[in-house]
Design a protein around this nucleic acid. Structure first.
Length: 570
RNA sequence: CGGGGCGUGGCGCAGCCUGGUAGCGCACCGCAAUGGGGUUGCGGGGGUCGUUGGUUCGAAUCCAAUCGCCCCGACCA
């Protein structure tokens, strides 16, 4: 490809609504343009990248036996009513009507459609297991789309659905898909973790998320060094032992603590550690209030807490007003010694002796406080894991990292096959619901995640497998030098013949402009041809991710390509 | 949904307070010079100032409504 024939439009400044680096770079490099909040057009350069990700995913799906289908983006409401999700899914489901006032939605996921398809096509256990996938635009009407393509309303997703007659068969396919996903991220050259995940409201018995590691990630994932354990932070179950001795010699003293509110301030005031302070948080599900106590250095894990409290609704922190009304003191003075609502204590908090906590009296804290079991409703694992906690599988300690969720696989079970009556006849002649698995990958999100993981101050640094062009050929001052022109064209031809995706900068722009554009666009290999070097039989090769420039024999581009492809270089 | 902010050529912004008929940088077009990290000079084209209504002789500017966009909204416990 030549730049004279390929649309590239880079910007010097990014629009002010771009927040994170991948969003800024995608706009500056001219990969995407916004049409509305969370809705984007892909320009040719961006689409090339998107297609590469898509094809890597497609190949891997096909390699593990999944078959591609394409379902509609506009889905009739009947299917969603059947699965009960027309009510359950909430406002993220964009509902529309046709000219006959018939209700449809824009598909945010396709369990309903695939289940309806399969129940009509598959009737015998002999046709199973089977695994269908599609790569398709999804729409989820997010409350707050942000971060560009990272959390868009319209996005490209690969979703696969498998059908089985036994749990064993589902387990086998699930594990194949797990491996396929791992292969995909390896082939994309992305650093990732597969982690144990919450099944959330999709339900089912098992689930893993795939995260691309990046500092800007919104999810926290915990893993040990050996890699034998990795989980979403919300899923990390800790098994601390409770201390045996229950008593302390000391008894509460109430101390006036003017203007001391935060745990840090409290610890400083009492000249103790934050580990020896107890945070008491008032949590509500909208109807009931709960006193939750964790150590000063710990945070509540709402997934665990929700299970512990066996509440249906989402839990939130009580408002300042509510806290005052219920506890009779401001937030900063709340303490666990109360009968005003049930008290739940985290294991590690319970293990504290002679600790400091709020006194439920404005401007006062308790010193040398100790637990009274009678006042505690439950002692349990309520907190988030932190760096250094022992790994739940017993191997080493945990480290917390940030990740971007790019894949999620579920064992669905029979939730949809039951509600939508997707039955097959088994070998005994009985009609049984098919057991299902579902497997999603955010294709467009991977593009953004890859940038979050691979960039520098000058722009994107594409992993070669998804670079829009692997190589750029830059003739210096080609307008004036026939020699440079000819050589550039020659190298361009040679690379093309070697099946290298190459772009020739044939528009006689200034070198500075070209270099910064190529850096911004993240082209992995840059080959520069100048009169001086050509006369010495050399060309200049620089990798985007390195600063080094090497001079290479002009006649041996093949040897460079070979070395690059074998991994010897780069 | 609550709080905050912003809508002015494709992009980034100024002008608004104190009303007088729109400006800067980038990008774009033409000419010339320049030619290894966003070069310089000269000359151009492009905007009903988000929309609607109001005040006024006169509105980008003041008032009202409306639409859109962005940010924050779970740690003072």
């Amino acid at each position: 490809m030549k730049t004279s024939r390929f649309f590239i439009n880079t910007l010097r400044e990014s629009p002010n609504d771009a927040e994170i680096i991948s969003h800024k770079l995608m706009i500056k490099a001219g990969l995407i343009r916004k049409n509305a909040s969370g809705i984007y057009s892909w320009l040719p350069l961006g689409l090339k990248i998107l297609r590469k990700v898509e094809n890597i995913v497609r190949k891997e799906m096909e390699a593990c036996g999944a078959q591609e289908v394409l379902m509609p983006g506009v889905v009739p409401s009947e299917l969603w009513i059947e699965s009960k999700r027309w009510e359950e899914y909430g406002p993220e489901l964009l509902r529309i009507e046709d000219r006959h006032s018939r209700a449809f939605c824009l598909g945010p996921t396709h369990e309903e459609v695939i289940t309806s398809l399969v129940r009509n096509e598959i009737t015998s256990y002999k046709q199973l297991p089977i695994n269908f996938f599609q790569i398709q635009t999804k729409f989820r009407d997010e409350i707050r789309p942000r971060f560009g393509i990272m959390r868009a309303r319209e996005f490209l997703m690969k979703d696969a659905y498998s059908f089985h007659t036994s749990q064993k068969s589902l387990d086998a396919t699930y594990s194949e898909m797990f491996n396929a996903y791992s292969n995909i991220f390896k082939k994309l050259h992305l650093e990732f973790r597969a982690v144990i995940a919450d099944t959330g409201n999709i339900g089912g018995s098992g689930s893993h998320e795939f995260h691309v590691l990046a500092d800007s990630g919104e999810d926290f994932i915990a893993s040990n060094e050996s890699g034998s354990y990795a989980a979403n932070l919300e899923m990390v179950g800790l098994n601390q032992k409770l201390r045996e001795s229950d008593k302390s010699e000391k008894s509460n003293e109430i101390i006036e603590t003017p203007n001391v509110r935060t745990i840090k301030e409290v610890a400083k005031f009492f000249n103790t550690t934050i580990q020896n302070c107890i945070k008491t948080l008032l949590i509500t599900d909208g109807d009931n209030y709960f006193c939750i106590c964790v150590r000063g250095d710990h945070e509540i894990n709402f997934v665990k807490l929700k299970k512990l409290l066996t509440v249906e609704k989402e839990l939130t922190m009580a408002s300042e007003k509510d806290v005052f009304n219920i506890m009779g003191c401001p937030i900063g003075s709340v303490g666990p010694m109360t009968k005003k609502c049930p008290v739940y204590v985290d294991n590690d908090a319970f293990n504290c002796i002679d600790f400091v906590c709020g006194a439920n009296l404005e401007g006062f804290h308790l010193q040398n406080a100790n637990w009274d079991r009678k006042q505690i409703k439950k002692i349990a694992d309520i907190r988030n894991a932190v760096d250094g906690d022992p790994s739940p599988d017993g191997n080493g300690i945990l480290k917390i990292k940030k990740g971007i969720e790019v894949g999620h696989i579920f064992k669905l079970g029979t939730k949809y096959s039951n509600s939508m009556k997707a039955f097959v006849t088994d070998s005994n002649g009985d009609s049984i619901p098919m057991i299902m698995g579902c497997y999603g990958i955010g294709i467009s999100r991977i593009v953004a995640a890859a940038i979050e993981q691979n960039h520098d101050e000058n722009g994107i640094i594409w992993p070669p497998p998804i670079a829009p062009f692997l190589c750029a050929v830059v003739p210096i001052n080609s307008k004036k030098s026939q020699l440079v022109n000819e050589q550039a064209e020659k190298i361009y031809q040679q690379l093309s013949e070697l099946n290298i995706e190459v772009i020739l900068c044939d528009q006689n722009k200034r070198p500075g402009v070209l270099f910064s554009d190529l850096d911004l666009m993240g082209i992995p290999i840059r080959i520069v041809l100048s009169e001086k070097n050509i006369k010495n039989g050399k060309m200049e090769i620089k990798l985007r991710k390195d600063n080094e420039i090497v001079l290479w024999d002009l006649n041996h581009i093949q040897s460079f390509v070979k070395k690059f492809q074998s991994g010897e270089i780069g």
